[in-house]
Design a protein around this nucleic acid. Structure first.
Length: 654
RNA sequence: GGGCCCGUGGCCUAGUCAGGAUAGGGCAUCGGCCUCCUAAGCCGAGGGUCAGGGGUUCAAUUCCCCUCGGGCCCGCCA
């Protein structure tokens, strides 16, 4: 049963070990042959390439120690291993482990040839049950630029989409344009007061300034009015809080005035003449939802300007979407109203004052959904307000209609949204259940991640307090260019620029993807722009070194004697390349892009060790050189394919 | 007050879901390595009561309970 190539070489070894173990069990301990055999990666090469703890398990049922059972199985297994060419030997060890040693020449040959033949597809093992999956990500409100915090969303979402697509799913990348919220009305209002100016900077940066300033001036007015109106109704604590908020916003105003004096002063002048800007904004929001021509024109105009900026940023980051979904379209098509009406017919909607509330707790309790959604039975789900008293809609309500729309196009929906929206996503799922979409709700996945913040301070779009992804990419690319210049003076400037783009952006992407999404990230320039070990550029550099070796060899090798690869580091490299497909499957099926980043980094590490220790082109013999060249090629392909999954480009020189 | 998430050497981080053989990396510190495939590199050294305390187990960083520390949520914001 000699296999020439495999989508997952290490899995072939795993299967053979499983079969051998199963057969041996049937022979030696027939009563326990039904035992499910599982194999794990041992912590150290001396314990082989796969290990089983089955003897610890079965010894519980027999009056025999694990190690004695292991010895018994060892003897029998070694007698029966001849029909399994990938197994070198089986040995009992420690307190009762069964360690399986791989036949390295076999594994090497299979791995190297598989990588070479499958090339761009190596490691991207296809699922047996492909699904249509919508990945909704980024969806930054179109009122300020994409900042480093939202960039974490974009990069995670893009990577998830790449991984699921490589897994063989039909993936659709959707951007949800929130043009209906209050924030859009605020920025449109400010834009209108400025006389609908043409952007004097990058479109989204320009809109971001208008938004932050308008919002800031509104907040200051509101707080001043609150404090003046005073006092009997406000207790001491509320007064204190309002005063502190006001101080905070005044500081923001000072900052914004300094950064954008023209916009700030124009808006300040214009706004002072307005009696009640707050109600004008509310009116704009109301008219927009009703489809009023003027309101639609102004809000769509502002939103489009901002989106134009997003598209520039995302294009540079090599992130693309299949669909841009306008939230307003779900209101204008009456989809939101229909949803609301259906919800009203369930027993889970009640009045509170002027507004309707959705009894999320009631649904969870009656339909016994608490354990389904991982909730404690004693936890009471807060109710959800479905609309404003002026008749306008609220975000989560609109999201119900949008979710149903998404499920008409896909079997699974993954929403990449910050952890802070966990409750809203839960309420959304419960609303879907109430409407009879329980199966859909179970296939709605909230891929949550924690925020990126500054040391001691939060990122805040509303305060204009952020570092844009554009700035971060600019700075990273600039620093990368300095490095490239140092190393490759003779290179054409155009190529230097291209490589700097790839390296700088690779650094940023890696930094935002390598940390477990559940953990908060504190932004520092050195964290996000790192070119040393454990970084995107480090992996890219390793890839470039592999390319360089193959270039220098300047000969084509078809096959080689892989038994010549005897050095421990060579074997570890083979193993990592062989295991890449299993790592990929784990990352894809558990939605864990960061383990791809981890793997790529570990492989780069191992490759650099190999690079420093062993000559390839000038190996002792031509035969050894051939075998190493094929190994380098397999590593090269694996590094590139792993980088591709996290959206990082692989330059052949740097 | 209630709920969710996180806590691993000075700093950052993997491993925890599916408990097992000396807890992997990186930064910083110290000491080495460019007549040889790119030194964005490699080799070596020191540094850990895996927040603390109980429990389950032959075995706990991993599972359960409690405490402490940090983040997030409980809006007619998104």
């Amino acid at each position: 049963m000699n296999i020439i190539i495999s989508a997952s070489p290490f899995t072939e070894f795993r299967r053979q070990c499983e079969k051998l173990l199963q057969k041996t069990l049937e022979k030696t301990l027939p009563d326990l042959a039904a035992y499910k055999v599982t194999l794990e990666i041992p912590p150290n090469p001396q314990f082989g390439e796969l290990t089983s703890r089955i003897c610890f398990e079965i010894s519980k049922h027999l009056s025999e120690t694990p190690i004695r059972l292991a010895k018994q199985i060892e003897t029998e297994a070694n007698l029966g291993k001849s029909e399994f060419p990938m197994i070198e030997s089986v040995e009992a060890a420690g307190q009762g482990y069964l360690n399986f040693h791989v036949n390295f020449p076999e594994l090497s040959s299979l791995t190297v040839k598989s990588a070479k033949t499958l090339d761009g597809e190596y490691g991207h093992v296809k699922t047996e049950s492909p699904e249509k999956i919508i990945v909704e990500h980024t969806s930054v409100n179109p009122v300020h630029p994409i900042h480093v915090g939202s960039a974490r969303n974009s990069i995670l979402g893009d990577s998830l989409a790449r991984i699921l697509s490589a897994r063989g799913h039909k993936v659709f990348r959707h951007y949800y344009i929130d043009d209906v919220g209050r924030q859009s009305s605020i920025v449109a209002y400010g834009y209108k007061m400025l006389g609908r100016p043409r952007p004097s900077a990058k479109p989204d940066h320009f809109i971001g300034a208008i938004y932050a300033i308008t919002n800031c001036l509104l907040e200051i007015r509101r707080l001043k009015a609150l404090l003046n109106r005073q006092t009997g109704s406000l207790n001491y604590n509320n007064m204190q809080k309002a005063r502190m908020d006001l101080d905070d916003w005044v500081a923001v105003a000072v900052d914004l005035q300094q950064r954008f004096p023209n916009i700030f002063n124009s808006l300040l002048d214009a706004m002072e003449k307005i009696e009640d800007p707050e109600s004008e904004i509310n009116a704009l929001m109301r008219r927009y939802e009703m489809g009023n021509k003027e309101a639609v024109e102004i809000i769509r105009e502002v939103t489009s300007i901002c989106l134009e900026g997003f598209k520039q940023t995302l294009k540079r980051a090599n992130i693309f979407f299949d669909s841009w979904d306008w939230e307003s379209s779900f209101i204008w098509s009456n989809a939101v109203a229909k949803c609301l009406n259906s919800l009203k017919r369930t027993p889970y909607v009640f009045h509170r004052g002027d507004v309707l509330e959705f009894d999320a707790e009631g649904v969870a309790r009656d339909l016994k959904l608490k354990s389904t959604f991982g909730l404690k039975e004693t936890y009471e789900v807060p109710s959800l307000t479905l609309g404003r008293s002026d008749g306008t809609t609220l975000y989560t309500t609109r999201d119900i209609a949008y979710s149903i729309w998404k499920f008409r196009r896909a079997e699974k929906v993954i929403n990449v949204i910050g952890m802070e929206q966990k409750l809203a996503q839960l309420q959304l799922k419960l609303a879907l259940c109430a409407l009879g979409y329980a199966e859909e709700a179970k296939r709605l996945i909230h891929f949550g991640y924690s925020l990126v913040n500054f040391p001691g301070q939060k990122i805040s779009g509303r305060r204009g307090r952020y570092i844009t992804l554009d700035e971060v990419m600019d700075e990273a690319v600039l620093r990368a260019y300095e490095e490239v210049k140092k190393r490759s003076e003779d290179m054409a400037d155009e190529e230097k620029r291209k490589i700097s783009e790839q390296v700088g952006i690779g650094a940023v992407k890696y930094a935002l993807i390598e940390t477990d999404p559940l953990k908060p990230v504190i932004f520092t320039w050195d964290r996000v722009i790192n070119f040393e070990r454990n970084s995107g550029p480090y992996i890219q550099y390793s890839y470039a070194r592999a390319c360089s070796i193959l270039r220098r060899a300047s000969r084509h090798v078809e096959d080689a004697d892989f038994s010549l690869l005897k050095e421990p580091v060579e074997r570890e490299l083979i193993l990592m390349v062989a295991r890449f497909p299993e790592v990929f499957v784990e990352a894809a099926d558990n939605l864990k892009p960061n383990i791809i980043a981890d793997f790529a980094n570990a492989l780069a590490d191992k490759f650099n060790t190999f690079y420093a220790a062993l000559p390839v082109v000038k190996a002792e013999t031509q035969e050894l050189s051939d075998a190493r060249l094929l190994l380098v090629n397999a590593v090269r392909i694996t590094l590139r394919n792993a980088l591709d999954l996290i959206g990082i480009e692989a330059p052949e020189r740097m």
